[in-house]
Design a binder for these strands. Structure first.
Length: 190
DNA sequence: CATGGGATTGACT
DNA sequence: GTCAATCCCATGC
């Protein structure tokens, strides 16, 4: 990504990440769904302030924040905004691109559409875990690269976030319009 | 030190 | 549609 890409308002970064490429070892996929979280609103882990758990969230933009959800799933986020601001983009769904056979082995012979159609599914499919918390998304084991040519002009739909109990009304979910690889369909469109 | 909740998924009715 | 699994860590006693 270009220098300073993550050092911007989290809503801009979340929208711009749609169509970008997530890679880990031999597996890669295109981001088709992402959500923004910011320490100014209570759905964000950083809302409670700086703790050992959320330290990465307040750290350098461009780091990966990986945390365990419901005691079971690892969720991948990209840290944004300057150091001291707790904000990140949750990667919620990918369109599988490379290493699909390996993804199927890890997830157990899934149809292509459901291989990475959820934040916990895609980390399992790509082999991403808590050990990746804090890695550099530019040069680390897990990387995010710019949009492939076919995704240069992707249309982005906006919706409310999923699976949260606070600040549910904020339209901070971004999806590639018409994608068949989303975790859930888009309700509203902008 | 004990407790409870969560940015989910998959299996079941 | 409902519901359990399962663990990190924030919070409170």
């Amino acid at each position: 990504m270009k220098p300073g890409f993550y050092d911007r308002p989290v809503l801009e970064v979340a929208r711009d990440l749609i169509g970008c490429l997530v890679q880990h070892e031999a597996c890669a996929g295109v981001i088709v769904e992402a959500e923004a979280y910011h320490d100014s609103e209570p759905a964000c882990h950083a809302f409670a302030g700086l703790t050992p758990r959320t330290a990465t969230l307040f750290g350098e933009p461009g780091l990966a924040y990986v945390y365990r959800s419901y005691g079971v799933h690892a969720l991948l986020n990209a840290v944004t905004e300057p150091v001291g601001v707790g904000a990140a983009v949750l990667i919620r769904a990918l369109e599988p691109l490379e290493g699909i056979e390996l993804m199927r082995e890890r997830r157990g012979l899934e149809p292509l559409r459901s291989l990475c159609s959820g934040p916990g599914k895609l980390t399992q499919a790509l082999g991403i875990g808590l050990r990746h918390n804090g890695v550099d998304l530019e040069h680390g084991a897990v990387t995010i690269a710019g949009r492939p040519p076919a995704w240069r002009d992707v249309q982005v739909s906006v919706d409310t976030r999923i699976g949260i109990t606070k600040a549910v009304e904020l339209p901070w979910r971004f999806c590639a319009s018409g994608s068949r690889y989303l975790s859930r369909p888009v309700r509203a469109r902008v």
